[in-house]
């Protein structure tokens, strides 16, 4: 799906991505994880062409992502950020349908798609007519997911999608989202700093530090066969959260 070769990105003296090679395979969920400043948020933006890399190349489905190709390629990507990033001047429905309207898709088709997606993300239909300021944080995140899924993208990219939510809402949304991802069978790329969340969602975890991949593999591998001491340290620091996760019935 994504293919990165020798990608580097600096902000002034700060190295965000350091000569990174990475394949993101289709059909499963890949989670970028690491401490603040490890480059995971920069990485997801580089994938979408929102930030051009200083060196190296990013390909999406074989096409190079650059300033020219990015706008069109992004229509095959759905993006959800912390807090949802909904436009306050549009209703939930208008937010979700904005790109479809811009592309001149037939109204009836868009309306049907809205209902379909509202059912999928379990958003009450009347919430579609409300403005972001009139719905809850969890609902906003569900609308953001609808907006990302509207054009039926090949890949979903999520940057700390649960970061702004309180624990209960967060837990419910996490379970709902995982079910949705399984149901859709889409390629998902997610960024989080929370190892429990990463393990909960990710088929594959990519642990980053200082812009480099420290270890790549399923959660079990990171826990039981850490590539270096740092991996163990990072996981142990959040151990209590991981314990909680283990108590959650599947």
């Amino acid at each position: 799906m994504f293919d990165l070769k020798n990608v580097s990105k600096k902000f002034g003296d700060l190295v965000a991505i350091d000569d990174l090679d990475l394949d993101v395979e289709g059909g499963r969920t890949t989670v970028f994880i690491g401490p603040s400043g490890c480059g995971k948020s920069t990485l997801i933006r580089v994938l979408m062409g929102l930030i051009p890399p200083d060196l190296g190349m990013v390909r999406f489905e074989g096409t190079e992502v650059n300033a020219e190709t990015a706008p069109l390629l992004r229509r095959k990507m759905g993006y959800v950020i912390q807090g949802g990033g909904l436009f306050p001047h549009l209703t939930a429905g208008e937010n979700a349908a904005l790109m479809a309207r811009f592309l001149g898709r037939p109204r009836a088709e868009t309306a049907a798609r809205l209902i379909e997606l509202a059912t999928l993300v379990q958003l009450p239909e009347d919430a579609l007519g409300r403005y972001p300021a009139q719905i809850s944080g969890g609902q906003r995140q569900r609308v953001a997911l609808m907006r990302a899924l509207m054009l039926d993208p090949d890949v979903l990219l999520l940057d700390e999608p649960f970061g702004a939510l309180d624990p209960i809402v967060r837990y419910r949304l996490q379970t709902d989202l995982r079910d949705i991802f399984r149901e859709l069978g889409k390629t998902v790329v997610m960024v989080t700093h929370d190892i429990a969340e990463a393990g909960f969602f990710g088929d594959l975890l990519v642990l980053l530090r200082d812009g480099q991949v420290i270890q790549k593999g399923p959660i079990e591998q990171l826990v039981h066969a850490p590539a270096e001491a740092y991996v163990d340290e990072f996981i142990s620091a959040q151990r209590t959260l991981l314990d909680c996760l283990e108590e959650v019935p599947e």
């Binding site: 979408m48 929102l50 706008p71 069109l72 390629l73 992004r74 229509r75 990507m77 993006y79 950020i81 912390q82 807090g83 990033g85 909904l86 436009f87 001047h89 904005l98 790109m99 811009f102 907006r147």
Partner: peptide
């Protein structure tokens, strides 16, 4: 973050201005 959301959707600059930023 809203500016980025509009860009990430694939809206061209003119449309971002008209549909998101100016309103």
């Amino acid at each position: 973050d809203l500016r980025e959301s509009a860009e990430a959707m694939g809206l061209p600059p003119g449309a971002r201005l008209r549909l998101v930023e100016l309103p």
